[in-house]
């Protein structure tokens, strides 16, 4: 069983949802990212999503755009991000790590080499924002050969017919982009989720994570009441900017408590 599947299976036994916080690699430097990864894993993160900085992050709002720019200024490269993962894995073998990014840097690295190196470093899954199922044959064979889950985005615009196509070749979990928009802007309501999640649930056995616009422990709790995991990104980057890495860990702890407060049928 993959590390991601293992975590969701254990949480199902426990009867609760997962918290997936986000770290933009090298924002504002490598050391801070490593500290955040360790701190999040020790304070309630069930899985961690790591952003790979790109100059042109088309699906991201101003907060993650700025974080990516800071990461690039601090010298982030894909090699550097994999090094970060490798170092984290020396101390932590259990927390799944998912890399989120855009296709071009992966193509520049070489898709095969990237999948091999990512797997060797201890990466568990990939979210490639600008790789729809129509183009997925570019990455899927190498990801599969190296045991990397390909986590697909599903949007409110994804119709039922298309849903099947998107889910085919997906593994680990599915990432429901709960709003039509960019990261860190609007927030889906409980009513939106109550309407949308069952539609996806009917089409897949994979756990469903919800992201884009999840900011508070209450919102995270609402999300896991309907879905299986809450992904929180932009608000943590804002806290990092305005306050400190310690404040981010504090917020992750609070978000984890929000998630744990919701008990789900096993």
């Amino acid at each position: 069983m993959s590390r991601i599947a293992g975590v969701f299976a254990a949480l199902r036994q426990e009867g609760r949802g997962a918290l997936i916080p986000f770290v933009e690699a090298y924002d504002p430097d490598r050391e801070t990212s490593l500290m955040l990864l360790n701190g999040m894993a020790e304070n309630g993160a069930d899985i961690i999503e790591i952003g790979m900085p790109f100059t042109d992050p088309m699906a991201d709002g101003p907060t993650i755009q700025a974080a990516g720019r800071r990461g690039l200024l601090a010298g982030a490269t894909l090699k550097g991000v994999l090094g970060l993962v490798h170092e984290f894995r020396r101390q932590n073998r259990h927390t799944p790590l998912v890399l989120m990014g855009y296709l071009n840097p992966i193509c520049a690295y070489g898709v095969k080499a990237f999948c091999e190196d990512a797997s060797a470093a201890g990466v568990d899954g990939l979210i490639i924002v600008d790789l729809p199922p129509e183009e997925a044959d570019l990455v899927l064979p190498d990801a599969n050969a190296n045991g990397l889950d390909i986590i697909r985005l599903i949007a409110p615009t994804t119709c039922d017919v298309r849903l099947k196509q998107v889910l085919e070749g997906s593994s680990g979990f599915v990432y429901y982009v709960s709003i039509t928009g960019i990261t860190g802007t609007r927030t889906a309501s409980a009513a939106d989720l109550a309407r949308d999640i069952p539609r996806i649930r009917a089409a897949t056995d994979l756990p469903i994570a919800v992201g884009f616009g999840v900011r508070t422990p209450d919102q995270a709790a609402t999300v896991v009441a309907h879905a299986d995991a809450a992904i929180v990104a932009s608000v943590l980057i804002e806290t990092l900017c305005k306050e400190s890495p310690e404040a981010v860990i504090r917020d992750v702890r609070a978000l984890a408590e929000g998630v744990k407060a919701v008990s789900k049928a096993a």
Partner: peptide, 20 residues
């Protein structure tokens, strides 16, 4: 049919835009 000119072109967009 895939919107390609040789190896170039294609449809590399986020899922939200794909149906459009």
């Amino acid at each position: 049919a895939r919107g390609r000119f040789g190896e170039f072109g294609g449809r590399y967009v986020a899922e939200t835009l794909m149906p459009l």
